[in-house]
Nucleic acid binder design. Sequence first.
DNA 1: GCAAGGTC
Length: 802
Amino acid sequence: MVVICEKPSVAKRIAQALSTHHQNNNYSDKPLDQEQKDQSPASPASSTSFTTIKGMNGQNYIICHALGHLYGLSDSKKGNTKVFPVLDPTWLPLSILKSKGSASKFLSYKIDKILREISEISKNAAGFIHACDYDQEGEVIGYNILEHTCHNKYSISKRAKFSSLTDEEIIQSFNNLLPPNEKLKDAGVSRHMIDFIYGINLSRALTNSIKKESSREKKGYRQLSIGRVQGPTLAFVIEREAEIENHIFEPYWNVRADFLKNNQTIRTQYYPQRIDSKSTAENIINACKNQLGKVTDINIQKTSIKPPIPFSLGDLQKEAYRLFRFTPSYTLSIAEKLYLGALISYPRTSSQKLPSSINYEKIIKAVSKLVDNNLHHNSSYGNKTKSILSYSNISSKLLSNKVLKPNEGKETDPAHPAIYPTGEKPKRNLEDSEIKLLDLIIRRFFSSFGEEATSSQISVTITVKDKFTFKAEEKKIVFEGWIEYYRPYFDVSGFVILDSLSFLKRSDILRNVKIELLEKFTQPPPRYNQSTLLQKMEKEKIGTKATRSEIISTLFKRNYIDNYVPSASNQSVTYNSKIVSKSSPNSSIQKEQINKDEFSGIQRSGLRPTEIGIAIVSSMKKYIPNIVSTSLTRDMEAQLEQVESGNTTSVQVVDKARNQIKEAIQSFNLNESKIGQEISLALEANRTTSPRPTSTAVVTLGTCPVCKSGKLTVKKAIKSKKRFAGCTNYSSAKCLATSSLPQKGIIKSTGKKCEKCSWPIISASGNNQGRRYQWEFCINSQCPLKLSSSNINNQDNSSKQI
DNA sequence: GCAAGGTC
């Protein structure tokens, strides 16, 4: 019997489970190649990609493994990207499709070798068992091998259905083989077809649309792309940017007060914290200043903090970003290296569970023997090194417990447990990034077995004149539990070491010694970073655990998004300017720096759409709106479920996609030159303004027509936050030239002057409910041209849609 | 050259 597995690690596991000779029942995700090298270091190259074993019933099994997909859809009209739509792609071996590029060359070689071997073995096979992951993709992987490599054997093959890799379940599945799940296969093949038909054709259409423009201007080839996952992901970034641009900063006020007792200062906040009117806040201050307050309530609340759950890939990517600022794709690439070095289990997992079959005790013991000296010198530990427990310390603490039971999350995975360390010793020197990530995985694994921590929050209420309520709050850890194991990575912000409130008693009288008004503003949502964008994709269920980070990287590669990092000087100008220093001369209201966390540039920094990214989405919204919303995925999933349940056929579903794309491409072609111009314009804008002007960068619009020596630049009014044009000689030569500017969109200099009044003519562009606009106009509101012709007076009327 | 999906 020929057994087809999806990947080496599973093939090895199945071989162990089925083999009567193997007594080793421990579940291991160690890569097969690694095992083979361990056993026969002299001839790893000549080793075959299959294993022959005798099963318990005397049956011979030849266990083969794939490397994920061995076949991929390909344009049947091959190569000519001007020809589209392509509506009937065919399956071709990936060793042919992937042969270019040195990184994948080795993989191509391996795939080619596997295909040749399976083809040879299948000639004399008594039967075929499809033992790939029991999900849509797994079914397609096995289907293609059985159909194309084994010569049309899918329909006569048997399906082994298992969802965990325990001996028991594997043996059970081989004793109860099922017929192939054709409907699952149909759904999977349809998914490939739909993604190909939409992705390839629209990407070609987009790329083609700018070819004429770029060849006219003798610009080089530029690849554009869009797809079912790329589109919505890019749209998330654009939607967020629009929210930020359209945000209205509404002021509100906080009152902070210090009370004195036994020479100790108690810092408090007025409650409710948010005060919507300044006069109300000032009344509070006037009423409470220098008054006595009484402790009316002391509330101590203990909360348990559960141990962290073991890592799924997404969790690991999130944590590595938080701690080390590793991007998700970088984290995946390091995790893969650790996996190939047999140091951690399979990383492409969505599971947050650790089955007991991995043998907790064995792993904890093995990890305890790992040398962690190098880890202790790790710079990521900073100066916390002294308080950090070694692996062996943690290990003996855990093993002294009666039961070993990890705290698990609710996510599962059809084929793998959560990520855990294997306890193997590294066979080479690890790079810094590998050491960091491995240490994180090890400490997370340990921590998940730890005891619950306990925190205690004390909240003291102080009331002035029986009416005004102030609260002081502090939180501290009273029992560390698992935090001890996760110490270098536990976020201690928000906790104090010693509380300064517990000496207070009910009815204590305190004197107010300081009270101050803080003006704050409602904040727009923060920009996404690579970690939060990935989480958004997880939440919206687009992409897969293994591909999400790659798709974010693609958006960077296409220059659809960029990373905005405000400079330090901009931060101080922009954010500190919001600090309220308004205090009437006679009042003791203090000038106060506002909370750094709330206004730090960190929140502002993040992913922004580029001009070209915005242009792509706005064109797509006009012609193929589905591709930039998650509705295509939703709709497709619903239809594929119908295929899976047999209520519709693959042919119907794929035909529908074909018809939709035919229509879309027709409409696209009719408007091709318009689209091409629009995107080319955005490309141009990207080139000339990189880095793009932002509200914090200095944008010069032209020479000041009033003093003739200064420049008019875009400024932001401190109080109203509105942007306007002002002269650079404002402070030095008291030139008061100003003019109002549109509050939304991007403003650029055109270099032109108004013929009538010689004020600068500027360009403003942006996006209004998905429609791009751009217009040029003289910024002088008193310009004789505007005053004489009322129809240009309204900027919206003079804007031209492009 | 292009999608999204799987993998060493």
